[in-house]
């Protein structure tokens, strides 16, 4: 690692930290209904939305109504996204005359975008028309992110309110999250990205003459190349800010039209963590104690930077197979050194690894390098961050509500150790909350391990694995970790666009999203009905460094216990074989 590495990580961290507080407080104002700077511009639009949709913005919902609204909205969205893909050949804005997407791929992609996963078994430029990319996929990037934030806000309200069964109005939270937070940020980012060279056009793909002529294996000469373009910038902005991650092009943010310059790279990687980090402050502000938000942010950041350090170390070591061949992998003025397989030369090790750790921890899933080509340890870092239930920053809304569930589990365990009644933010944690919290924590683990086991046992699962041995197993384990935790990144190498994987990964994404949301909202409903109890000498403070350490320990131990045996069959044994050879 060079000084340049530390400078770049330092710059990234400083900008992120500087943005967390203002954005977090702004989002709190949006959800608390306080006046904001954007009111004059957006309030009329908001009122218009409510009028045409027939929403009574003053009425509130119980947790059951809130959950039912979220589920109904998601179901309708799924059908719409499925339908647009199947009918795209008949719809406008399809200059390449692309055919309808296959039924199994439409099923998988609809689920993927509605659940905020953005797992992509298809290649964007050769599969999706401009209309599908915009109307189906980009719209869901906004909606799925806003729905996750709405669920989080309902949970936060449960800590603030007492003796009520009302948690707010899902439709109001959805609309406000979209038009006050996601749309303005995305608009600003998209404009900057266009200035950097990210394409935004309805023009058909361009046929250009090759600078260097080439021939195919059967001797046919190739003189031209088709360059895919499209309305990419508007999709790229929200794919990062909404922690969606689905690329406009197949190569995602390694494609020069999605991520052309060092500035576009910095802004995109910042955007991945921006809202999940700022929501911690939103939480602190809404519960009336900002220290609570800082404590959760500190826990996330500590794990993030430790994992970043491990991945940077591993990738800077280079590839031992190349070392045996005498390939120079040392840092010099001419090369960044280390393991550069699958990485863009223009980004080097630091910016590739920073992106990989950010995208894995934040449930984003976009990539600017290929995780399949990382060293076993580098790949393990990305995979394990996903397997920690996506609570180290996590998805917008979903990451923080996952972390709050871990905080509830932590106060419960601390209570067991010292014989105190567990309470969090003045609410007693009872048997029902712990049952639901256990479901939230264990469900993704079950889906990941079961899905992986089924896939490696069946011929349909094994036949599209591109690597033999532990690396092939890692590809499958990574795919299920990514789907069930709604991350969406792929290890690459696994041929996942088959009816088998489209079906089973689709089901994993559905369970990972909706069966997690139900217990979270049930906890919210239960806590809102409880009285707030004042702090006493017996209360475990939840804003102190001790609590941060306890919380990290619970997250890490649960993650380690659940996945160590599976990881031992994949990246760990691969690392041992690697170092041995």
């Amino acid at each position: 690692m060079t000084i340049n590495t530390f400078l770049q990580i330092g710059l990234f961290s400083a900008i992120l930290l500087a943005c967390v507080k203002p954005l977090g407080l702004f989002m709190a104002s949006v959800y608390l209904g306080r006046p904001t700077l954007l009111d004059r511009l957006i309030r009329p639009l908001e009122s218009w939305f409510y009028r045409i949709a027939g929403i009574d913005s003053k009425s509130e919902m119980t947790w059951l109504q809130y959950a039912s609204s979220l589920l109904t909205f998601s179901f309708v969205s799924l059908i719409a996204v499925y339908g647009i893909q199947r009918l795209q050949c008949l719809l406008p804005l399809n200059p390449e005359s692309l055919d309808a997407v296959s039924p199994d791929s439409s099923f998988n992609t609809a689920i993927s975008f509605v659940t905020n996963t953005n797992w992509q078994g298809y290649s964007g430029e050769s599969t999706m028309s401009y209309l599908t990319q915009m109307l189906a996929l980009t719209v869901q990037n906004f909606m799925s992110a806003a729905a996750g934030m709405a669920a989080l806000v309902a949970l936060i309200r449960a800590f603030v309110r007492q003796e009520t069964n009302l948690l707010g109005n899902f439709w109001v939270d959805l609309v406000r999250g979209t038009i006050y937070i996601l749309l303005p940020l995305s608009l600003g980012l998209a404009i900057i990205l266009v200035s950097q060279g990210v394409v935004q056009t309805f023009s058909p793909y361009r046929e250009v003459a090759l600078l260097e002529l080439t021939t195919t294996s059967d001797g046919k000469s190739i003189t031209t190349q088709k360059i895919a373009t499209g309305p990419a910038a508007s999709q790229v902005a929200i794919k990062q800010l909404g922690t969606n991650g689905g690329g406009f092009f197949n190569a995602n943010s390694a494609h020069p039209f999605e991520n052309p310059t060092p500035l576009s790279n910095l802004l995109q990687v910042l955007s991945i963590l921006l809202i999940p980090a700022a929501l911690c402050l939103t939480f602190g502000e809404m519960v009336g104690d900002r220290r609570q938000g800082w404590a959760l942010l500190a826990a996330m950041s500590i794990v993030f930077f430790i994992m970043l350090g491990i991945s940077l170390y591993a990738e800077n070591q280079g590839n031992s197979a190349f070392a045996k061949l005498g390939v120079d992998q040392a840092v010099s003025d001419l090369q960044s050194g280390g393991n550069m397989e699958g990485k863009e030369v223009r980004f080097g090790i630091t910016n590739s690894v920073l992106w990989s750790v950010a995208t894995a921890s934040a449930s984003n899933g976009s990539v600017n390098s290929m995780h399949d080509s990382y060293t076993p340890l580098g790949g393990l870092v990305a995979m394990w961050l996903i397997q920690l239930d996506e609570v180290i920053f996590g998805g917008v809304g979903s990451g923080l509500y996952g972390m709050i569930i871990f905080a509830i589990a932590t106060v419960f365990m601390a209570g067991l150790m010292v014989g105190r009644t567990p309470e969090y933010l003045g609410k007693k944690i009872g048997a029902f909350e712990m049952k639901m919290a256990s479901l939230v924590i264990m469900l993704p683990c079950v889906v990941v391990l079961l899905g992986t086991a089924i896939s490696v046992m069946l011929a349909q699962g094994r036949e599209t694995i591109s690597n033999p041995g532990p690396h092939g197993f890692s590809q499958v384990l990574y795919a299920f970790s990514s789907a069930a935790n709604n991350n969406g990144s792929a290890f690459a190498g696994l041929g996942a666009n088959t009816p088998f994987y489209n079906g089973i990964l689709g089901l994993s994404m559905l369970i990972g999203r909706f069966w997690m949301l139900l217990p979270v909202l049930a906890i919210a409903g239960s806590l809102a009905e409880k009285k707030k109890i004042p702090n006493s000498n017996g209360t475990l403070p939840t804003h102190t460094p001790l609590f941060v350490v306890l919380l990290i320990a619970v997250v890490v131990i649960v993650g380690a216990l659940s996945f160590f045996p599976a990881l031992a069959l994949g990246p760990i044994v691969e690392h041992i074989l690697w170092t041995k050879n």
Partner: peptide, 30 residues
């Protein structure tokens, strides 16, 4: 084929709404 995939989606949401009811009754039972 569309029917099969849409049916799968429908079935998942029916099960999910049943689960929602189940969790809700679990709370009432406590």
């Amino acid at each position: 084929m569309d029917f099969v995939w849409l049916l799968a989606l429908g079935c998942f949401f029916v099960v999910t709404f049943l689960l929602l009811n189940g969790i809700s009754s679990l709370r009432t039972d406590k």
